[in-house]
Design a protein around this nucleic acid. Structure first.
Length: 226
DNA sequence: ACCCAGGGCGTTG
DNA sequence: CAACGCCATGGG
């Protein structure tokens, strides 16, 4: 069996076990961008609170965000942990959007994938994962999103070396999956779902995990819920 | 009282 | 480039 088949098969198994994940949980592309920045190193539950606050305050628009005072913005997204940094990064993105793209995400997303990625990576507070999340879930262009779960899980499965970095991990998926936006979107969502539910407390894959039979270590953590 | 979440950046060695 | 420290909330 080839590597390609393994990655496709794992996707099929996760998909069968968990079903459609409905990612990204957002109503507009701007909401995806905001969520992508806010979710850095924070549980999504905390981000959801912040997004709800922004919506309630009517700030979830380019012009409204641009006009919002930094302290007010920070207060609304307080639940996302590094709220001062994130408030600045949010406004930094909006500022660039207004100056270079007439405040329209459409214009920014009209760039070629590679150019768009470089543009996003040039902004403060947007690294590879955040950039790729925006590209995949807001701009709907085919980049595979890599996060900590992806590296941890696929290293343990023996498909990546232990210390694999972002680019190497991304290359594994990019090189062995058909180029398909919806597939990339769903695969990453399923990986996060798996990481959230099963790989608790940095524990390896365990019983009740759809991939348990593939885990070379097979430690048994019975307390872990499905 | 701990532990850790859907990272990124600047500073060291 | 790896290994730090920093940022600084909320739920389990």
């Amino acid at each position: 069996m080839t590597e390609k088949n393994i990655l496709v098969t794992i996707y099929a198994e996760l998909s069968a076990a968990y079903g459609p994940q409905h990612w990204w949980p957002a109503e507009t592309p701007l909401e995806v961008v905001v969520g992508a920045i806010l979710t850095q190193n924070v549980a999504w539950k905390n981000v959801a609170m912040a997004i709800a606050n922004l919506k309630k305050a009517g700030l979830l628009g380019v012009d409204r965000l641009a006009a919002a005072p930094l302290p007010e913005l920070g207060a609304l997204i307080r639940s996302t942990r590094y709220y001062n940094q994130k408030a600045e990064r949010l406004k930094g993105f909006i500022d660039q959007l207004q100056t270079k793209y007439a405040g329209r995400l459409d214009n920014l997303f009209a760039l070629e994938l590679g150019a768009l990625r470089q543009e996003l990576l040039g902004l403060r507070g947007i690294g590879k994962e955040t950039a790729d999340s925006i590209i995949l879930y807001a701009a709907h262009k085919p980049v595979f999103v890599v996060d900590a779960y992806t590296r941890r899980i696929f290293s343990r499965l023996g498909l990546l070396p232990a210390g694999a970095g972002y680019d190497q991990t991304q290359a594994l998926f990019a090189g062995n999956l058909p180029v398909d936006v919806l597939l990339y979107q769903e695969y990453h969502a399923l990986i996060v779902r798996l990481g959230n539910r099963v790989c608790l407390a940095r524990q390896p894959l365990c019983l009740h995990c759809p991939l348990a039979s593939r885990c070379p270590q097979l430690p048994v953590y019975e307390k872990n819920p499905v």
